[in-house]
């Protein structure tokens, strides 16, 4: 180049980053996955936000349904009803999902997941196996539903060198008011404080005595734990303004009763464990965090687990720094 700056990109480097897939299948790696396998992976990694049947939880996106609704008052846009290219689904799942653990799935697992999403939209049968070979054979219902920006033609009348300045209307009436809906957030500091109070966990009221040792926390370990906690942040909050999200608030969790955060809907097994008197001691939490689904079959926590013991120690130290 003219400036001679930068260096040649190596083939391995390009391979590591250049993962996008185009509608004609350019960029798609070889592999395959079945609906059956996809269903399992989906239940474990995706259902917490997108629902067991890809129907969506809370405000998280629905991935299935909505066929024939695009011209309705409230269209439901899903992979089945709206997305024009299957490449987009594969590419997005591969590079951006699952939320909080992006780019960790194997190629075959991505095929399986996409197969399951197709199945949940009734676009393939339950014995379907998606692969790079049959990828372009899948027909997307809304493939023909898009036109390229035509504003300059369709809205030509908005180019108007002499807009009306006087007597532009006979009368003006108010036809709708925002106050009637009242969905505007409050701005006052008082309100914010009130919300925090309500959302604060009721851990003090738990019947179990705290078992936290009152040793001083190692600030370095706490700092390390804060980094590890990034993996948890997609679902959990700690601190003064923490609220229940996909997972419960974790203030004061170490040493306190399980399943006791106010306003959080726990899974059945977690509720049962709480009734049996489970207390989140260091040891119990460490065991849970190593492999959540093995420790408690049926837990809503979709996290796959912390492999390193020192990461667990660090994150426990960090959580202890939010004792209450």
């Amino acid at each position: 180049g003219k400036f001679g700056l930068g260096r040649a990109a190596l083939p391995e480097e390009i391979a590591a980053w250049d993962k996008d897939v185009a509608p004609d299948g350019t960029g798609l790696p070889a592999g395959s996955g079945s609906v059956e396998v996809g269903e399992e992976i989906f239940a474990e990694n995706c259902a917490i936000c997108h629902g067991d049947f890809a129907e969506g939880v809370d405000n998280w996106p629905k991935l299935a349904g909505g066929e024939g609704t695009l011209a309705d008052k409230d269209p439901l846009k899903t992979v089945g009803s709206y997305w024009p290219y299957l490449s987009t689904t594969w590419d997005y799942v591969n590079r951006s999902m699952p939320f909080g653990a992006a780019q960790t799935m194997s190629t075959d697992d991505v095929y399986a997941m996409v197969a399951y999403i197709l199945y949940s939209n009734d676009l393939v049968d339950d014995d379907f196996v998606l692969s790079n070979e049959n990828f372009l054979d899948v027909e997307m219902p809304n493939a023909g539903g898009f036109i390229v920006d035509d504003r300059e033609m369709a809205e030509k009348h908005f180019w108007n060198p002499e807009p009306c300045m006087e007597n532009c209307k006979d009368s003006v009436e108010i036809t709708m008011r925002a106050m009637v809906l009242d969905v505007t957030p409050d701005e006052g500091g008082d309100d914010a404080a009130a919300v925090t109070d309500e959302a604060a966990p009721a851990v003090e009221e738990a019947a179990v005595e705290p078992v936290v040792e009152t040793v001083a926390l190692d600030p370095e370990l706490v700092a390390k734990g804060e980094k590890v906690f990034k993996k948890c942040k997609a679902c959990h909050q700690v601190g003064e303004d923490a609220k229940n999200k996909t997972g419960p608030i974790l203030n004061g969790i170490v040493g306190h009763a399980a399943g006791a955060v106010d306003g959080f809907k726990y899974s059945k097994p977690m509720k049962a464990a709480a009734e049996d008197g489970l207390v989140w001691s260091d040891a119990e939490l460490a065991a849970f965090l190593t492999k959540p689904k093995k420790y408690m079959k049926g837990t809503k926590m979709s996290f796959s687990g912390l492999k390193k013991e020192k990461d667990i120690d660090a994150v426990l130290a960090y959580l202890k720094s939010y004792a209450d």
Partner: peptide
């Protein structure tokens, strides 16, 4: 060609009254 990623197909496209969408 355009990659037609999520942010230029599923999102950031504008659905018109008849159900077709501008991209």
């Amino acid at each position: 060609m355009a990659i037609e990623s999520r942010e230029e197909t599923s999102k950031y496209t504008d659905t018109l009254e008849d159900g077709t969408s501008r991209k």
